[in-house]
Design a protein around this nucleic acid. Sequence first.
DNA 1: AATGAATGAGGCTTCATTCAT
DNA 2: AATGAATGAAGCCTCATTCAT
Lengths: 210, 210, 210, 210
Amino acid sequence: MSPNASLRKRRKEDRPAELMAAALDLFVEKGFAGTRLEDVAQRAGVSKGTLYLYFDSKEALFNNVIQEGVIPVLVEGEGIAARHQGSAFELLEKLLTNWWAGIGETGFAGIPKLIVAEARNFPDMARFYYENVIRRGRALIGSALQRGMDSGEFARRDVETTVDLVIAPILMLLILRHAMADGQNGQDNPQHYIALHLDLLRTGLKGSQL
Amino acid sequence: MSPNASLRKRRKEDRPAELMAAALDLFVEKGFAGTRLEDVAQRAGVSKGTLYLYFDSKEALFNNVIQEGVIPVLVEGEGIAARHQGSAFELLEKLLTNWWAGIGETGFAGIPKLIVAEARNFPDMARFYYENVIRRGRALIGSALQRGMDSGEFARRDVETTVDLVIAPILMLLILRHAMADGQNGQDNPQHYIALHLDLLRTGLKGSQL
Amino acid sequence: MSPNASLRKRRKEDRPAELMAAALDLFVEKGFAGTRLEDVAQRAGVSKGTLYLYFDSKEALFNNVIQEGVIPVLVEGEGIAARHQGSAFELLEKLLTNWWAGIGETGFAGIPKLIVAEARNFPDMARFYYENVIRRGRALIGSALQRGMDSGEFARRDVETTVDLVIAPILMLLILRHAMADGQNGQDNPQHYIALHLDLLRTGLKGSQL
Amino acid sequence: MSPNASLRKRRKEDRPAELMAAALDLFVEKGFAGTRLEDVAQRAGVSKGTLYLYFDSKEALFNNVIQEGVIPVLVEGEGIAARHQGSAFELLEKLLTNWWAGIGETGFAGIPKLIVAEARNFPDMARFYYENVIRRGRALIGSALQRGMDSGEFARRDVETTVDLVIAPILMLLILRHAMADGQNGQDNPQHYIALHLDLLRTGLKGSQL
DNA sequence: AATGAATGAGGCTTCATTCAT
DNA sequence: AATGAATGAAGCCTCATTCAT
């Protein structure tokens, strides 16, 4: 066995991940139809044909990219919730800030923009994403809100809609970050943005102070 | 003049608008690359070649669609602000609810999703949109916030970031509505959603009580 | 009858000729396939549809252009020959110089280049041209040469091939003039060129002296 | 190495040359606009898309065909001149007959017809051809003529124009051969034609005897 | 496992031709 | 007789996919 066989082997085993990372970048940047498999292969440092050793088609690659990209988001979010102890607002705080720290600056952060752009072309993928990420993410936020309302920490409001309003600024942060060129995405300081969002929520959720 | 001469003339004069309306629908649904000009033509009830009597290329059609789609948004928003008299929060309220009433349910409401999906493929278009819509829309909201902070109606906060947070839920409403299939877009009751957003803002903007 | 009715009528009657003149120019410049009927119509100052009032198709227009363009060449050449009295070389001289004077600088001078470029795409047209121009033109030159050889004015040579050699420089003059841009067509002084050709022929046809 | 590996490799390396040969034939026959890339591919025994592995566009293919087709003409002609020793007329004789032997019956012989037909549509290509073939070919003939005039072998005449007259019948031979169908191109015996041209020149260049 | 040459379906675009006015 | 809007066939070109090596 040659001295760099293990290195070679490791590379081989990483091939799918490398290809998916390259594909994610390009899908986010150019959309599904606008991405050329040749560019994906080149960015991953392999030939076009090699792609087909690991993925049956462009669409299969796309689905894999989405599914793999979605897992860390779930793991991250649910781990945070499971470990939480403390007030409802503190949970919200943790969820938003820690989730950003774990996901927001990684390659996976482009997924929401990709979903938004392509959901109507790939309804199955959209459903998968909805069931596995949106629904579970909403449940996380929803339970925190419900707990706060039950304890009197928050004013009673329609929980489902409030969930949307808590999530929306975070999603927009991610989406704009990957949709617009630098300087047009509105936010060069995500931490500050999230902090201010929480600041508004702190009193906002409490509701009319007589 | 024959009885249907005016009818024919009207059709001709409306052709560009009809084509652009058809194109907007399809661009929003399928994205730029995923839209076939033949489908645009068919939806507008003409043949493929007819498109080229009015637009030089697919990209020219796209640019026209964006530019024309942007104008009503501007006109609507700035009209609302110009006519306003009253408190800062009331202005916010009017801007968000009236703007939705005027734009939110029209065909133009798909534009933000389209921008988000295609901005990186069409930087010039993105810049145009940024300069003509985002910047001016932000200025509108920003001046209302500034007025409220100056008068003591709102707590002092970073205005630019607060603008983002006021706008984000509205944008997400529009984007999800055109990105996801019915039942997955989170909101079947936009008025309620906007009202709740304003409700959270009412106390949120005021800031820490006591 | 309005005062300019006759003028109007005259224009109408000239339409086909105007269209053919415009078409000839463009066919010579761009070739058959490279010429757009819209450009022909525009150059003639009419709309595209009007062309079809006078010509059944692009190919019909082309054939008409060739046929009409060929007639003056014939008339000119045969008139010269019929009127001639004098030596054989003087006839050659007259044919080449007078024919140039009558045709060489007119719009019809582009026809040979057009034939050369398109003959293989339009064999019928090529045959027509061959029968009606080449054959008759060759006969003209050939009879002059034959007469000179019979009278001892010229050395005896293969008449058919000599005809080619007498004609070739004149054809090249025409062809290059319409094929190449100014400054690349070799000849800015056709009269001088023709005179020198005749000068070479004068002794050349006579043949080996002593 | 498998038995037909070298065969396959050779095929690949020959692809561009095979494609250009096929393209040259068709461009000469039908002109640039009249040639379909699908036909070029088919004649070379490959599919449409394969063309684009080697040439960026139809126009790039055309330019390559011209440039490659021009090189042998140059090499042939200048080699003949460089090796020459003897009288000026003998040089002319060699240039015309040997050049014909080396080029006249090959595929490259169609190039002049192609140039004549397309020069006005491709001015850059025409300039290239003018600079690299016409100018150098003329210089070759011109120096032979000049030498003959200086030595008294030829009568003194305008050299540039005489060059045109020496070349013209050869060019016409080539052009007609590729422009007209068999039986209409005037010459089925090029050697005889060239010999007679030289025969006329022999005394013609000497000029008026006594 | 990897390559990259080859394929061909499909989309954008042009333009000869038609036709209602 | 004239217009010019409309059509649709056809050609260039791209790129996902295949396959021999």
